[in-house]
Simulated scan of single mutants.
Amino acid sequence: MLSVRLPQLFDIHQVPKVFREDGIMSGYRHPRSSALDCILSSFQMTNETVNIWTHFLPTWYFLWRFSMLCSTLDFLTESYTWPLLVYLLLICLYPFTSSCAHIFSTMSDEARHICYFFDYGALSLYSLGCAITYGSYVMPDCWVNSWLHQHFVTIAICNSLFCTSMSCYSRFVELQFPHKSKILRTAAFVVPFLFDSFPLFYRLLSCCWGSCSPSEALASHSYHLLFAFLTCFLFASHLPERLAPGRFDYIGHSHQLFHVCAVVGTHFQMEAVLTDMASRKDWLTSHSFLPSFLGTMGVLALGILLNLAIIGTFSAGLPRTPRQSTSASSGAHLHQE
Rank of each mutant, 00 (worst) to 15 (best):
Leu226Thr: 10
Ser286Tyr: 03
Ser170Met: 03
Phe229Cys: 13
Leu88Ala: 01
Leu85Met: 11
Ala272Thr: 00
Ser3Gly: 12
His333Leu: 15
Cys70Leu: 14
Pro140Phe: 04
Ile183Asn: 14
Ile24Trp: 02
Arg320Ser: 14
Ser329Arg: 05
Leu243Arg: 12
Tyr61His: 08
Thr164Ala: 12
Pro178Asp: 03
Thr46Cys: 04
Cys130Leu: 14
Pro140Leu: 05
Pro291Leu: 03
Cys38Gln: 00
Gly303Phe: 05
Ala188Val: 03
Pro322Val: 09
Phe162Asp: 07
Cys70Ala: 13
Thr321Tyr: 15
Thr46Met: 03
Ile155Gln: 12
Cys130Asp: 13
Cys115Leu: 08
Leu85Thr: 07
Leu305Lys: 14
Val4Phe: 00
Pro291Gly: 00
Pro291Thr: 01
His224Ile: 09
Ser292Trp: 06
Leu239Ile: 11
Leu200Phe: 06
Thr164Asp: 10
Met139Lys: 03
Phe104Lys: 01
Lys281Asn: 09
Leu6Met: 11
Arg323Cys: 09
Phe195Gly: 04
Phe229Leu: 14
Leu205Val: 14
Ser279Tyr: 10
Ser292Ile: 04
Met166Gln: 10
Pro240Asn: 08
Lys281Gly: 09
Arg171Leu: 00
Ser220Leu: 14
Trp209Ala: 15
Pro16Cys: 01
Ala262Glu: 09
Thr285Met: 09
Leu274Ile: 06
Ser160Gly: 15
Phe56Tyr: 09
Ala278Lys: 12
Asn51Gln: 05
Thr186Gly: 13
Ala316Val: 12
Ser220Tyr: 14
Ser237Lys: 01
His259Ala: 02
